[in-house]
Design a protein around this nucleic acid. Sequence first.
RNA 1: GGUUCCGUAGCUCAGCUGGAUAGAGCAACAGCCUUCUAAGCUGUGGGUCCCAGGUUCGAAUCCUGGCGGAAUCACCA
Length: 596
Amino acid sequence: MRIEKTITLAVKRFFTEKSLPEPDSSLIQLQKTRKEFEGDLTLVVFPLVRLMKMSPAEAGLVLGNYLKELPGISDFNVIKGFVNLVVKSSYWIDFVNESAGDSNYGYHEYTVDRETVLVEFSSPNTNKPLHLGHIRNNLLGNSLTRIFEANGKDVKKVNLVNDRGIHICKTMLAWEKWGNNMRPVDAGKKGDHFVGDLYVMFEKAYRNEIERMVEKGMNEEEARREASLIKEAREMLRKWEAGDPAVVELWNKMNGWVYEGFDVTYERLGVSFDKIYYESDTYHKGKEIVGEGLKKGLLIKKEDGSIWADLTHRGLDEKLLLRSDGTSVYITQDLGTAVMRQEDYNAGKMYYVVGNEQDYHFRALSLILEELGYAWAQNIEHISYGMVELPSGKMKSREGKVVDADNLIDEMIQTAGKLSEELGKLEGLSCEEKESIVRVIGMGALKYFILKVDPKKNMIFNPEESIDFNGNTGPFIQYTHARIRSLLKKAEQTGIVANSAGAADFQLSKKETGVSALLHEFPQVVAEAGKTCSPAIIANLIYELAREYNQFYHDHPVLKEENCDIRNYRIHLSTLTGEVIKKGMALLGIEVPDRM
RNA sequence: GGUUCCGUAGCUCAGCUGGAUAGAGCAACAGCCUUCUAAGCUGUGGGUCCCAGGUUCGAAUCCUGGCGGAAUCACCA
């Protein structure tokens, strides 16, 4: 049994034996002992003193003496109202020796009726290549699916591509006007970049046209509406909705280019999906649902024909669902998508990884679904993450102040390559091996930099700091893993084998217990990360573990240790640390090399 | 203006279901490679936890009110 559980049960038993009222589990507060005190786990007695009718000091002493008799506890001390418990070295040694090599360590079992959980992430528009904001989204979504899996869920990864609307028509129009019938290959560009450039071209020309009209005395709002370019784009949208074959063909062609480009970026990010939904498919369903809701009298139709959901009694406003001309808005297709997904998967939970700018939207979405009578609406959870900003402020596509995903990935890998070269780390490896390791390091740096921050918070992405490979970074953790692998390889080569048989007992050093205790925490942190939808807490633990292990490694011989019980334990400690780093990083979607 | 979120070291971030003297990394400075990878390790300096009240044995953490910042409240997505 885990030591925390043993202690909690013992505290309860203490109260029963003394005929005192048994304390609620929430009153038994165990925490890590702070570094400056002797001990491993600390019981806070303040919440218990009322039940015991003693002073904190007395209560601490009594409880400490009682708990000291437990098999896993060797000693204790009381400071103020804190009982610092010293866990026996043998407990840590047994734990480490048993867990090393256990491929399931840290993962959580599932029962026969395994819950299906759906995670939507990425959700790009097809008029622009992916940028830094999408990277955070993709990395978070991908990592969360792995974390949910580790917690025993059957996870379905889904993407919702916004492939229709006026913005796509703008790129189509731009291609017709200025594309010279070129394909991305002709321009030597990735498909998504090719189309994105056309979009920028359109916006530029559109702005120019507005300016000219304003110079001639028109007010800006009118010019924005009346410019010939936007009229043409709108006309194209109308034709698309009417199913005009030529327009649909062009639409298919250009979206195809974009998807080819996205596929490359997804591949590099290590992201994939079980199913991709397209807005052009789901918005029909959304319209249907709205129609049914109206028939049932659950929605309101206004005089101009527009259809609304009344959410005023739920603390929100009225929400538009269909325009007066009968066309759908953003939320219409989200309603359709949600219903389609429920039909497809019947998931126990539907997560949406979407930026916090859409908090209001998702509140409205689940409320509307509830209003429409879908009981599963309460299974919807918006995983809301913060914006990514640059040191110079917000990213603004209009000012060209965006960090392009592909460029960023290239730069990270280049930097990793340059550094590896300078440090002479990869001498004697083949080109392919070098390339692969450099890619793993560069991507590790990028992914870790983003995932170590609490998803809920806005973050600042400083390109200079992100390519730093020292300190709290992905490469630091990867390096620790590589060191361990190298150590274990050496053990193998020299015939030093760790045997798993036989209990051992000797005094562990401070660092040894430190590493052991962090390894011991891993399973709870995996569970906690699943509950709170936060890869960051896994990143924090893995970092702390790597740091602690490096300190241990610095002043404890492993293979050269002569006492074989101690050597045995240290090899197991290294093995388990390597495994937990590898697993933890895998939960973040980060690979770890055996050499670097 | 309403609603929601945020404010911790020069910078980037931990810590927040109340617990001990608030921690890391970066940056600065000073050390450690004949020993399992120095992408490592050790040390030094650095704080009005935005401000003011309140709740209590105890508040960075909870409550109220300010100040500062962000998002959102579209017949945009």
